[in-house]
């Protein structure tokens, strides 16, 4: 690596940028990204006393099983319910929202109709207004209609995803050749038949990508459920943990449940991410997320 010649010296990496220094710097960043999650795993094995009494990155008595059974039984066994609620909100919501987006995206790419780009302009305007800005208006309307504190109040607003329509149009354009749709029409297939039997299979990677991003977005949403729900039986897991966390400020024996509950709340999204990485990459490449 050491270059003696004058000509090579200009091209040789400076000492600051040696392979070793770069590797160390990148490993430090890796440690920063991983240590909070590592801490969460270790803390989930400790009881309330060890949490404050022992060093954060060292294991003490392993009480993971105790913590899990306390978590599952606390407040009448409500945590599993929150978890299932989240799975339903995110699973059903993302599936329905993805279908809605691809129906529209397919139509915008494959159909010709008057004022198409103007209509699409409405979709793009929708992209500008994030869920964080419509949450309170949604609450005010739902409260007038008597829909607050219902399952629907959290599920239905999650179906709106204008950016998903934009992405679905991009996916439809790049994955489904127009000739394929045309051939289906010549064979006398109905438009819905073409969509479900020809277009959706050809866009499948895009469908999975959009589903993943929607699932993650709904799973992570906190503001809307906070506004809509006071009935604890309907809480998604993030809102439930928020509630327990405020309890823990006065009652320390909630600590292990907040921590163990947080661990289980990140497991599904991390697993989805690790196992379906290539779809995440596809989504990021096309500018998905936000």
């Amino acid at each position: 690596m050491s270059a003696a010649g004058g000509r090579d010296a200009a091209r040789a990496p400076s000492r600051l940028l040696s392979r070793g220094a770069v590797t160390v710097a990148l490993l430090v960043v890796m440690a920063y990204c991983l240590f909070p999650l590592l801490w969460l795993v270790i803390a989930a094995t400790k009881d309330a006393a060890d949490l404050t009494g022992t060093y954060g990155f060292a294991f003490a008595d392993v009480n993971f099983a105790d913590n899990v059974s306390t978590l599952l039984e606390r407040d009448g066994g409500i945590y599993p319910r929150w978890f299932v609620n989240s799975l339903v909100y995110a699973g059903v919501g993302a599936a329905a929202s993805t279908l809605i987006c691809f129906l529209a995206g397919h139509a915008f790419d494959k159909f010709d109709f008057r004022g198409k780009e103007k209509v699409f302009g409405f979709v793009l305007i929708g992209v500008l207004v994030p869920g964080a800005a419509t949450a309170l208006p949604l609450y005010l309307l739902a409260s007038n209609l008597g829909l607050v504190n219902t399952f629907w109040a959290v599920l239905l607003p999650g179906l709106v995803n204008p950016f998903g329509v934009y992405l679905a149009r991009v996916f439809a354009h790049s994955y489904t050749p127009y000739e394929l749709v045309e051939a289906g029409r010549l064979d006398g297939a109905r438009e819905f038949g073409i969509f479900f039997r020809i277009a959706v299979p050809s866009m499948w990677p895009g469908v999975v990508t959009l589903f993943l991003f929607s699932f993650n977005g709904i799973w992570n949403n906190f503001f809307l459920p906070l506004l809509m729900l006071t009935d604890r039986d309907l809480f998604p897991v993030a809102l439930g943990l928020y509630y327990w966390n405020s309890q823990s400020l006065t009652e320390a024996d909630y600590y292990p449940s907040v921590i163990t509950g947080s661990l289980f709340a990140v497991v599904p999204v991390i697993l989805l991410f690790l196992f379906l990485q290539r779809y995440w990459r596809a989504g990021l490449g096309s500018g998905a997320l936000k």
């Binding site: 909070p36 801490w39 993650n216 906190f222 943990l241 999204v269 991390i270 995440w280």
Partner: peptide, 20 residues
């Protein structure tokens, strides 16, 4: 690895860092 925290819910991230 660098992208991994991005899938963690913001509220859970805040809980973890609250303890930290």
């Amino acid at each position: 690895v660098y992208y991994l925290p991005n899938v963690v819910p913001g509220l859970i991230a805040a809980i973890i860092w609250l303890y930290l």
